[in-house]
Write a protein that binds this DNA or RNA. Sequence first.
DNA 1: CCTATATTCACCCTTATGGGTGAATATAAA
DNA 2: TTTATATTCACCCATAAGGGTGAATATAGG
Lengths: 119, 119
Amino acid sequence: MGEYKNTKLDDVFTAMSDGTRRAILARLAQSDARVTELANDFPISLNSTSKHIRILERAGLVTRAVQGREHVLTLNAGPMAEAMEWMEYYRQFWEHSLAALEDFVIKKRKQDQRRSKKQ
Amino acid sequence: MGEYKNTKLDDVFTAMSDGTRRAILARLAQSDARVTELANDFPISLNSTSKHIRILERAGLVTRAVQGREHVLTLNAGPMAEAMEWMEYYRQFWEHSLAALEDFVIKKRKQDQRRSKKQ
DNA sequence: CCTATATTCACCCTTATGGGTGAATATAAA
DNA sequence: TTTATATTCACCCATAAGGGTGAATATAGG
């Protein structure tokens, strides 16, 4: 509500909105890797991989260390914390829904039990 | 990694990647609202609002109840749970980073204390 | 110096966003 | 029945994604 131009969150959520990029993050969670190594792991070109990395860097989720001609990418999950915080506020809503669903199921089961006793 | 075409997560993260849509979700967290009501709360046209709502619906974050000519939108935070779960895996990484940073700061402080005693 | 490797730059193409306007549609109300 | 309201549909425009290819750049290694 207060927020309106939180471009930081924009970038983080955008970065995570693509399956290939999520897979790159998962890969980097195992160990650092170079651009070419990442490209080999996915069915897309080196150039395409490079572009995905740029989007991840923009979100701050990946850090680049240039060592000569090699660029070593490192996972930096930090920015996810802010995204989690934002979503945390909504936890009450889905947990409330689940609780309501549970209540419904339990009441329904008791109802059914009463019915079966009458028969 | 295992996942690769999780279009559900794609849709949820995409829906949350825009400030206006995040604001709409925050608004609906207060109470249900009609399309026109939402449009009045934001500096964009009714049509643009309608499009944002479609994207939120695609992600399952908003539900529509048509009552005559009025469409009542309801927040459905459920799909955020899956997104949270996905991000939860990465918590270790940013918490680890924070812990490492804390260690560094503490050691640095002690170092500085030793130095000031020597002077 | 020459060559191979690692990445990016500069493009092309297609589709999706994000914004707009005006018209069509559906329903409520006079 | 006519009119007003609520929402969407059909477009237009600009920009960003997501994919590709070929060339340029930078550095490592003979």
